[in-house]
Design a protein around this nucleic acid. Sequence first.
RNA 1: GGUCCUGUGGCCGAGUGGCUAGGCUGAGCUCUGCAAAAGCUCCUACAGCGGUUCGAAUCCGCUCGGGACCUCCA
Length: 487
Amino acid sequence: MQGLYLYNTLSRKKEEFNAINPPFVGLYVCGPTVYSDVHLGNCRTFISFDLIYRYLLHLGYKVRYVRNITDAGHLEGDRDEGDDKFAKKAKLEQLEPMEIVQKYTVGFRTIMQLFNTLPPSIEPTATGHISEQIEMIKEIMANGLAYEKNGNVYFDVEKYNTSYNYGLLTNRKLEELLEGTRELSGQDEKKGRLDFALWIKAKPETLMKWPSPWGWGFPGWHIECSAMSRKYLGDTFDIHGGGMDLQATHHTNEIAQSQACYHTAPVNYWMHTNMLTVNGVRMSKSAGNGFLPLELFTGNHPLLEKGYEPMAVKFFMLQTHYRSTLDFSNEALQASEKGFARLMDAYKTLQNLKASATSDEDIAALKNKCYEAMNDDFNTSVLIAQLFDAVRIINSANDNKLNLTQADIDLLKSIYQDFVFDVLGLKEEEGNQKLQAALNQVMTMVLNLRAKAKQDKNFQLSDDIRNQLIASGFQIKDSKDGSSWTL
RNA sequence: GGUCCUGUGGCCGAGUGGCUAGGCUGAGCUCUGCAAAAGCUCCUACAGCGGUUCGAAUCCGCUCGGGACCUCCA
């Protein structure tokens, strides 16, 4: 089998993945800023990286997956004015900043669980790593690439660029970047227009603040990821991911901070996921066009026609490649919902398939195609296309239109286990187990009654039963061997 | 303004220089007491105009759309 290829933002092409120290892999993903509910666009990024994490695990890598929780700093506008987002929101809700953090962290984890994503190996918080961040800032200053002004510390981008390439990740020259930036105002403390804050001086009213060599203050947004990834994954690690919107600023600054601190490129493979759009426009907090996952699950939103199960939503996202924008619409979501149901129905059918002496299909080749799809930069679109080929085979075998050996039936089961459940992280929406069992019994009874009516040629009654079941949301399938039902 | 990305059938979405995914929808057929489900078939698309090539939706150029980033956002 060919190796795993992934698209590296650094080179802007697909590269074969080679771990620094196999079988170990270090994976860092920029996590959420927990001052409000995660919206669906955020979820897409974390679902994408969950897929990548799962596939690496499936291939046998020992992955340390670090996803931070940003619970401090992160000013609006990278200026030393006003409170940080947490304090701001805390005043609004009349809560302690850490109450806000707690509330939205718990909310975030709940949603991630509903989407059936695996928890990261480590979820470090910015507030838990203040000293590491201060140490890193000190090192950068010692290397002459940061300067202190009135209790604030700034990164000197133009000086950094004389030894390193600041615009590496976005393939841009410093001069071009400077053109796109606003002029410094007269009283600005920064030396250069592109300079960004590493440490920000606290105001008397600032709630979240820590002592530092430069006085009381709090860290700038970018330094936390550099400090925490270094602490848990080392100076240079394998994969760093995040949304595309972080590429130009946050990730560019992360690279600069690490290089300025210890003179080494921090990351081998940078991976960026694309945005979720609504009517062609990016879903974002500031645009106010975001859905909350819970609104989507319940259908409680003006733009939604109905509610959608988390797994249907996840399947909808996985049908598109992670580097393409995904446009949200009711129509597309409903199409995915039906497709997902068909995929899962076939799995049930698979459990009762009867084996033949020979096979008419090459299941081993099909499974190989699944690996090829995933090895090609995690191409879930193609993977899912292959899975629907498996669905076709299963349904045809069930209709006795083609034959499968027991070995091939088992292979089909392994395709489901490996790719549908383990890699894509899909699962059947399970209801209450007890209720489920009781429902099964009742439905068996009702269908037996209907079968009896059919036997007696009392089609009036049998159709009545069926129509009422359909009206209640059931779907009845009649075949030679009897009737079955799904919801 | 600068830097990029993108334009695929009714809808959503993969994709490779020639073998032209997949899902949903619609039509027909098979099966069936009738349906449903399932299978098969069809509606065979690549913004427009040039160019390169034996051959391009896929490479190049231009034009016209759409979007992202450059400012907080996954």
